[in-house]
């Protein structure tokens, strides 16, 4: 019987522990509700949304896009990287950032919540991985050929037409 109870206690410990561990950070942490796509091209737009900890306090939410090659925060195109989130009447405050992938590379994206009202723990979300590949660029050689060649052709046509007109006018004058 003792063995049976011991087995039951072991099963309860194994089954219960992870659920308790998973519930704890969700209550106090910052949660990314909309992560960027895993793969993007330069120029593609993306959005990141996050919610502040639901404890009634005011938080500064900061989005960081860490360039893994340089180890520095990437300069983000077209957004303000901070936002104040506040829990209002029980609802959890959300913040979102929209921007464009500006440079090819591998990035780690995460949101940090800094408490504003009293000293507390700074929390961060789980990071998302983001790979930005270079966008296809116009082919320089053919484009330059057209960009230089076509005005030359039109200029030659202009010279030809004008010389013909002048020749025609001279022939008319001689008659």
């Amino acid at each position: 019987m003792k063995r049976l109870w011991a087995l039951f206690a072991l099963c309860a410990a194994l089954g219960g522990a992870p659920s308790l561990a998973a519930a704890a950070p969700a209550a106090a942490g910052v949660t990314v509700t909309e992560a960027p796509p895993a793969a993007l091209q330069v120029g593609d737009s993306f959005q990141v949304s996050a919610t502040a900890p639901a404890d009634g306090g005011r938080y500064l939410l900061t989005l960081t896009m860490l360039d893994l090659a340089t180890g520095s925060s990437a300069d983000l195109e077209g957004w303000v990287p901070t936002s104040v989130g506040q829990t209002v009447s029980g609802a959890q405050a959300a913040a979102s950032w929209a921007g464009k992938a500006g440079k090819a590379g591998h990035y780690r994206v995460y949101v940090t919540a800094v408490p504003l009202d009293q000293p507390g723990v700074v929390t961060s979300s789980s990071p998302s991985e983001l790979a930005v590949s270079a966008a296809p660029a116009p082919q320089a050689a053919p484009l330059m050929t057209v960009a230089v060649g076509e005005p030359v052709v039109v200029a030659l046509a202009m010279v030809w037409v004008l010389s013909r007109r002048r020749r025609g006018a001279r022939a008319g004058g001689e008659r």
């Binding site: 120029g43 593609d44 296809p136 660029a137 330059m144 960009a147 076509e150």
Partner: peptide, 21 residues
Amino acid sequence: VTMSVLAIVSLSLPDLSLMGQ
């Protein structure tokens, strides 16, 4: 000429790469 200028500018201005091809 306008099209040529735009085509050359699109190759030389890196900021335009954000628009994608």
